[in-house]
Simulated assay, not measured.
Amino acid sequence: MSTFRSLIILAVMAGALVILAPGVPVVPKETTSPLVVGETFTIESQVLGETRRINIYVPPGRAESPDARLPVLYMPDGGTAEDFLHVMGLIQVSVGNGTMRPFLLVGIENTQRRRDLTGPTESPDDKKIAPRVGGSEAFRTFIRQELMPQVKARYRTTDEAAVMGESLAGLFVVETFLLEPDLFDTYIAFDPSLWWNDQKLVGGAAERLRARPKLAKTLYFASSNEPGLVRRAQRFAQVLTAAAPPGVRWHYEEMPTETHATIYHPAALRAFRAVFKPAK
């Protein structure tokens, strides 16, 4: 998860995401009004056995017709104290200046991040990072069976869907691309934690890719200056070069001036411009 921290405080009020400036003297209530930047709702997940909060941003420039429909960008680490705000800002600016198509942003707020974003592991060291790990399959089921239908019911969307994440969320993105590629159309991962389970995901990637005669998907991934992450990302790029089936459009971006803590925001900007270009 990005270490980005906004200089604003968010409060959830009546289903809307509201921002309040910190450190500002209290003004009589009748002279102020909330600044609404999005919406929020909860899902009582039967799959995960818990309540999950979902944050939504509808960008400007969504076509002039009130019946216009938007593609959807799903984002783990999507809480207001996580990566939702800065990604929302990137979409707002990028759509406004015409460098990306408008997408409905769906931020999935974490409860047990390391449980949801990791697959099974045989590594004793991996199992030490949290009381529960290896829940990525259940998390995908939650997205597919519970979240996506809710989004389609609440908002006017197209069938196009993308997913984006960094670090463990990037691992989830790559794992989903390899294990259940039909869930999304576009996969975006930054500094994915491909070291998980002794790198077995990348180790088995070529066999999985070759088993698919054609795969019309888009994959964009980037790495920072973290040596261990770079090596594994480069190895994954080599696998894709050798084994990616026809139809896969993929790009690997090395960003050596960024650290693991800083890569998300600049990499997301590059990814949006590369894979979500407006139609000419």
Rank of each mutant, 00 (worst) to 15 (best):
R5P: 12
S6Y: 06
L7M: 11
I8N: 13
M13V: 12
L17I: 14
A21Q: 13
P22T: 12
V26R: 08
T31C: 04
T31K: 05
T31L: 12
S33V: 12
V36I: 14
V37Q: 02
T42I: 06
T51Y: 03
N55G: 00
V58M: 09
G61K: 08
A63G: 13
D67E: 05
D67F: 00
R69V: 04
P71V: 04
P71Q: 01
L73Q: 05
G78C: 06
G78F: 00
A81E: 15
M88L: 05
G89I: 01
Q92N: 08
V93Q: 10
V95D: 02
V95P: 03
T99I: 11
M100A: 12
V106E: 10
V106T: 12
N110C: 07
N110R: 08
R115V: 04
D116G: 09
D116W: 07
L117M: 07
G119I: 11
P120D: 10
P124W: 10
K128H: 11
G134T: 07
E137H: 11
T141Q: 11
I143N: 02
Q145Y: 02
E146L: 06
M148V: 08
M148L: 08
R154P: 13
R154E: 10
A161R: 15
M164A: 09
S167Q: 08
V174A: 07
E175T: 15
E175A: 14
L179V: 00
P181E: 06
Y187R: 06
Y187T: 02
A189C: 04
S193M: 03
L194Y: 01
D198P: 00
K200V: 03
K200F: 01
A205E: 05
L209Q: 12
A211E: 13
K217R: 09
T218V: 01
Y220A: 03
A222Y: 08
S223W: 00
S223H: 01
S224F: 00
S224W: 06
E226M: 09
E226R: 15
P227Y: 09
A233Q: 08
R235M: 08
V239A: 06
A242S: 11
A242E: 14
G247L: 01
R249H: 07
A261Q: 14
T262V: 15
Y264S: 15
L269E: 12
V275G: 01
K280L: 08
